[in-house]
Design a binder for these strands. Structure first.
Lengths: 330, 330
DNA sequence: GGGTGTTGCCAAAACGTTTTCTCAAACGCC
DNA sequence: GGCGTTTGAGAAAACGTTTTGGCAACACCC
């Protein structure tokens, strides 16, 4: 009467035990049809709704998978990570929903304990860092994990990972730039230590070593705006004739810096970048992009995790990266 | 040793009581600095992680807000609702995360009990139906609700609602079409009973009554593809000279039907539609759209709900709808 | 009429925390 | 030395389910 009806109230109302009510409602035990009908009627009448938290505690499952967002305190959250997360989680969410799972996006900046406060059955970790705290946490809590990007800590070798052929595609792009005349192809990148940044840098340098392209890397300095780094890169004595940006932020910065320096694109400078989608965003110059297909990756990750939770072995995870050639590279 | 460490293990390890350990970890009771340090050390050593479900049960809060997705079993899920939900939840999620809340998207098709199984502190209901089951459920569970679209059931008058000026903007568009020569402006709509469909239909008919435009409404029949309805509308003896589509699906259907019937746009037929975003999607003809700003609405809804959960009164909720005129209306 | 099941129900033990209430000891004050 | 207050800690009661194990009662079969 006072507060919401609990299972106890239904039991009292019907004169049955809590056990029998639970069985009748969940269909798990052995209950006569007559009794079940009685319970259902009483539950309906009382407006009884089982408390999901209590049920979760007792059964050990809540039916929710989580995506921690770790870059909230990063300088680049708004420009870089937010769009990627938005696309990734949108894809993951829709797939999860279609497969009868709920997906929760949890703020998980290092300080905030949010990720530890939210009930979860499984977790998708985006771009794990070396010695990733969240990853370690999940293993401790015995929560299944799927990673988007390679888990760098060797101890986590058992975690399913979405591999990406972004590096291959990057090589393809660089090859193409070189084949069509560029001789000083540079990389504009960031200083964060996520696997995405690290892998890209490594792939670029390896390609340089293999082809003889001079490795020209400009990295954002702390507390610096991307455009400043872009301008510094384009003002070097040995100015590059083509630049690949780590993501949309750096791509935009390159466009802005080139405009300011009076460099025509693609005449004086060829520009490309990585991007979470292959959609044409209509920059001032149509931009050549390596599309990471964030939404699709999210969907794949969610599907894999749901498989794991259901006891199935996860299929080999792979999302084809797309190369879209547009006018900015001639 | 066998399974994960619980608070009990920490208590045993330190020789303290469970109460003191809990106090030391949460900082709530009175614990000496020395004892706290001891507890922290032991917890760290054991790799203790409090169980969020148990904590939630005891404290009554889990820190999660939910968005139920109710149209999963609708014919129109893939074409219509999915994009709207994807944009809406992406907006809501990012805002929630930035304000230290987790947002979970829950499949809630009438049959599935998912929404009842997920622990939630608050809920955002998108486009409530008359006599909305989810809305009723939340009120019974005493869960705060924010609605995107008007709650039609008078009993739910207390629920904060995101008002929309979509109807005003629709009138503006219709006025403009009429002012520039259209005399037979039709509406291509659906048969679902959500508030969005109902409100639009009502606004259109009211406008017709006020201006003398003949009300020409074509609604999708059950198990019919939108294009068939569009073709039927455009094949009428009293063919409209302008049509507004309820959403992107109907807009596309209109384009396809017009093409098939050899009607030039905007020469023989002017076309507009509602849309979740004002972004140019590059249809065959640049389309005049009423943009509902789904992502922004999601963000506003999340912000309002978080305010309510924090005890603040929700501000008046309003998302300006945008009218984007493009070539399809001449 | 003694086995052998099966059916319908219940008591009680988890589940792992938070929180309330109580208590003893230490402390400060006149 | 008596008295009130503060401090540090603990026992036990929630929180609201699910699940385990058991117990009558009834049915069936030779």
């Amino acid at each position: 009467m006072s507060s919401r009806a609990g299972i106890r109230d239904v039991a009292t109302a019907t004169g049955l035990s809590i056990t029998t009510v639970s069985h009748a409602l969940s269909g798990k035990g052995r209950v006569s049809a007559k009794t079940r009908a009685m319970v259902l009627a009483a539950a309906e009448e009382l407006g009884y709704r089982p408390d999901p938290i209590a049920a979760g505690l007792a059964s050990g499952r809540v039916g929710v998978i989580g995506v921690p967002v770790v870059h909230l305190d990063s300088r680049h959250w708004g420009h870089t990570y937010r769009p990627y997360y938005a696309a990734f989680t949108a894809g993951a969410t829709m797939l999860a929903v279609e497969r009868e799972h709920a997906l929760v996006v949890v703020p998980a900046a290092p300080g905030s304990g949010m990720i530890r406060r939210v009930p979860l059955d499984g977790v998708i970790v985006v771009d794990p860092e070396p010695n990733d705290a969240i990853l370690a946490d999940c293993l401790r809590r015995a929560i299944p994990v799927v990673a988007d990007g390679a888990p760098l800590d060797p101890g986590h070798a058992t975690v399913p990972v979405i591999h990406s052929d972004a590096d291959d595609v990057l090589r393809t792009l660089l090859d193409r730039l070189r084949a069509t005349g560029s001789r000083r192809i540079a990389l504009l990148t960031g200083t964060e230590a996520d696997s995405y940044t690290i892998d890209t840098d490594r792939a670029y340098r390896a390609w340089c070593a293999a082809t003889g392209n001079p490795p020209i890397v400009e990295a954002l300095q702390p507390d610096e705006v991307p455009e400043v780094a872009a301008k510094r890169l384009l003002s070097r004595a040995d100015r590059p004739d083509a630049v690949h940006g780590l993501n949309e932020t750096y791509g935009e910065a390159l466009l802005a810096a080139a405009r300011r320096l009076g460099l025509s694109i693609p005449g004086a400078l060829r520009v490309s970048m990585m991007c979470e989608t292959s959609e044409d965003k209509r920059w001032e110059v149509p931009l050549t992009v390596i599309s990471l297909e964030a939404a699709e990756r999210g969907a794949i990750a969610a599907a894999a995790l749901i498989d794991v939770l259901a006891g199935k072995a996860a299929d080999r995870l792979h999302v084809p990266t797309r190369l879209v050639i547009r006018a900015s590279t001639g």
